[in-house]
Amino acid sequence: MPTGVHLRDVRTQLFDAAERILLRDGPGALTSRAVTAEADVAKGVLHKHFADFDGFLAELVLDRVDRMRPRFTALREAAGTGDVAGNVTEALTELFGSVAVAIIPLITFRDELRARLREHVPTGVPILSEAGTLLAAYLAAERDLGRLAPDADVHVLAGTLLGGTHLLFADRQGPRPEPAAVHKAVTTVLAGARPS
């Protein structure tokens, strides 16, 4: 198999292969051999471009965090439009309907991966930490527009929304939660933050 593929293309190919394995088989199936087989590249390609497997996984997580940001930037820019609960429901459904729900247990399971990620994200789980910050920014914008109560604690709301929604999506083997169930969880959390 050719190994002279441009670094960027190989990274993308390997990351996409790892994502497919995570979504299909879960974090326990993710090995360097499984990734290179799924990507259809020589076994040594991964280690040619990454110091070790945990280095690869850290770069995968950070890449997926970067891919998540535009969705939450769009959410922030949507402040003042649509329904707050509807906007949040849509963003969280997209977040947890992606590879994020499989990456969270991967980070929890691998001590060395968590240590590597601490260099980039000092506290929390990277995908959830970033999503929480971006969701809080959206909620703050809605609060500033008077669509949430002036005393609404947007950081507590964001954390509660993320935690509650993650629980709905956490069972990768079961059916995805119905949109109505996600919306109900979001509206319940936001109920106390409605302006009077």
Rank of each mutant, 00 (worst) to 15 (best):
T133L: 15
L46M: 12
G124M: 08
I21C: 04
S129F: 09
G28Q: 13
G124S: 10
R64F: 10
E130F: 12
K48D: 14
G80A: 10
F50K: 01
A85I: 06
L60G: 00
P105L: 10
T93G: 12
G26T: 03
H120M: 07
S32N: 12
E94F: 10
A102P: 03
G26V: 00
R20G: 03
V88T: 06
L117H: 02
P105D: 09
L14K: 06
D63R: 11
R71I: 06
V61N: 02
V121C: 09
T89D: 08
L139Y: 02
R118H: 13
L57F: 11
D40V: 15
E142Y: 03
R33W: 10
G86M: 08
L23H: 11
D52L: 09
A37W: 09
P105T: 06
A131S: 07
R116Q: 05
V65L: 11
A136P: 02
A140T: 08
L95G: 00
P105Q: 11
G82K: 05
E112C: 11
S129K: 11
T89I: 06
A37R: 15
A91K: 02
R20T: 12
L23D: 13
R71S: 14
L106Y: 01
V35H: 01
R33Q: 13
G132H: 02
V45E: 00
H49Q: 11
E59V: 06
G124T: 03
L135A: 04
F56A: 05
I104C: 12
H120T: 08
L23K: 14
G132F: 00
D40M: 15
G28E: 12
A74M: 12
A42I: 13
L22H: 02
V101I: 14
A91N: 06
T89K: 04
T93L: 06
F72S: 04
